[in-house]
Design a protein around this nucleic acid. Structure first.
Lengths: 141, 141
DNA sequence: TATTGTTATACTCTATAACTATA
DNA sequence: TATAGTTATAGAGTATAACAATA
């Protein structure tokens, strides 16, 4: 029944939070040697796949505030993994590109995330995985 | 295929993070007047449902570090929503109980969370919801 | 020796508000 | 007026390390 609440175990948001925490914990514990957080890898990955992307575009893709995006972009810029160039058409914008070092770091990160994803996916059949992915996309729009 | 990674959109953990963020954002934006975070409500709820629960038990149920649990427990203790009593059998332990004020706050929070959950659940059929819940539980164990 | 609660500390993520430069 | 980037600031959540009291 919708709209009725008994114990906290019935709350979908509760289990979503625990699941997210478990996955984040696994990533942090197993891939600390990467020197990159999940979020930093996301920004690096999106930048490598979309050369010249601006911070506002990254913010939209990652559903983050502009200021939050700044902090993450600047953290991986400081590591030398991405670099900025002025936009040719709009001088307010900054175009971001992965450096060679960034591409190499991303390749390493993808291997780690591949193992991480296999650990996560091992619980599910292919059909279940497709359903889960569809459900999650429906939640975040 | 497992073990292969193309774009970031194929990464389950990526969508889990976005979904979690979207739900957290909806809760924060719509129920700021509660004066309680999701996490604080969780602790209050578990305490009300399990009178005399200890911090370590809360930590296990919420998959948190003891120190992290402390911060949340003490925050809602400071609001007067839960109170401590020494354990009768083990003097190291603290037994936690919801106060009358805490029970009232929890009742209000449950109404808010009910609306929040309806917003979340509106995307799914009953069968899909059962599947989603099962998947999430499988992830966090 | 192990467990419970505690404190100090630090890092990540998140957001708001206000500012500058540009459109 | 609106947008892009920036900075300052603050709060929430997370974790590690070390300690005292108790088991």
């Amino acid at each position: 029944m919708r709209g009725e609440l008994g114990g906290i175990d019935e709350v979908v948001g509760f289990h979503l939070r625990l699941a997210h925490g478990a996955v984040l914990r696994h990533f942090s514990e197993h891939f600390a040697e990467l020197g990159l957080t999940q979020k930093q890898v996301s920004v690096l990955w999106l930048t490598a796949d979309n050369p010249g992307i601006a911070q506002t575009d990254l913010a939209v893709r990652l559903q983050m505030d502009r200021a939050t995006t700044m902090a993450i972009v600047h953290a991986i810029e400081a590591k030398g993994l991405i670099e900025r160039r002025p936009s040719a058409t709009d001088r307010r914008r900054v175009a971001w590109f992965a450096t060679d070092q960034g591409s190499a770091a991303l390749a390493r990160a993808k291997l780690a995330i591949g193992r991480h994803e296999d650990w996560l996916k091992s619980r599910f059949t292919e059909a279940e995985l497709a359903a889960l992915l569809s459900f999650l996309k429906r939640i975040h729009g």
